[in-house]
Design a protein around this nucleic acid. Sequence first.
DNA 1: TTTCAAAACAGAATATTTTTCTGTAAAATT
DNA 2: AATTTTACAGAAAAATATTCTGTTTTGAAA
Lengths: 152, 152
Amino acid sequence: MALDEIDKKILRLLQEDAHYTLKDIANKINLSLTPVHDRVKRLEKDGIIEKYVTILDKKKLGNNLTVYCQVTLTKQTYDTSEGFNQSILNLPEVVECNYVSGNFDYMLKIIIPDMESYHHFHQKKLSVLPEVSLINTVFVISEVKSTTVLPI
Amino acid sequence: MALDEIDKKILRLLQEDAHYTLKDIANKINLSLTPVHDRVKRLEKDGIIEKYVTILDKKKLGNNLTVYCQVTLTKQTYDTSEGFNQSILNLPEVVECNYVSGNFDYMLKIIIPDMESYHHFHQKKLSVLPEVSLINTVFVISEVKSTTVLPI
DNA sequence: TTTCAAAACAGAATATTTTTCTGTAAAATT
DNA sequence: AATTTTACAGAAAAATATTCTGTTTTGAAA
């Protein structure tokens, strides 16, 4: 479970590019294939490595609008929260949803084609949820940084 | 550049798991290896597929705290923005940074070990930037959803 | 419609990569 | 000091990606 410096080097490389081969990694950290293979398998088994995914270009897929929705629920009960959570999991436009502290209850990140789609999403999918009381929308004007890389 | 239904099926699969083999994909969509291979290569070349990355378990890496920082700059000029942007790119704890509309200028997402680290980050790394005037912190209490999958 | 060129696909051969196997050296435990 | 465990190297085997050849389909132009 404890990560040594070699594990960390492997993780740093794989975070950057999941398509590095074992040979690539072995060369970069001066080891043979075997230890690299064994370590990656261990990191997968221990769940340190969660999954390998493909990142697509959202704009090339027609998603030109990103917004944060700050949502306040009607009640702060467990059942209300759970109902809201379940609904959110079924909305593919919602790529992040976090229960938060402060003047509202949830922070959502929405990725969507354009303002018209957002209007539809807001009116027909989000505000109609019985648990939702208030929605404050923050529009993203320009993306400065977006990474899946965690500091190790 | 235009995506047909087969391209979309491939992208949906690869978004889920970048380690699906061509054979896996070919089987799932009833095609031979060749067209799957050719299409993936085209999608990479066209930049629809941006990159393949590895997602790590942030908690198992000791990052138990996620926060949103709502940052207001001292001035809304181009130079101020650019200076801030550059500084942010060098902060590995900042995994998202967006210039936004509303009562503040930037929405940041920070992933960090604990409250003490956040205190340090806030005092020594963020508030010390000459462009920063105001920081409002929103703490994540519980993560409901977090995905790299875009709707296709 | 007919012809032609281009695109999409299948199957096989080849190259590369992953996985497994065997054995050795180093480290930790008893 | 002896023994077990862990980490590693190298080679063999299996699986996968890539390339090649040729066929079918599609779309455009005559």
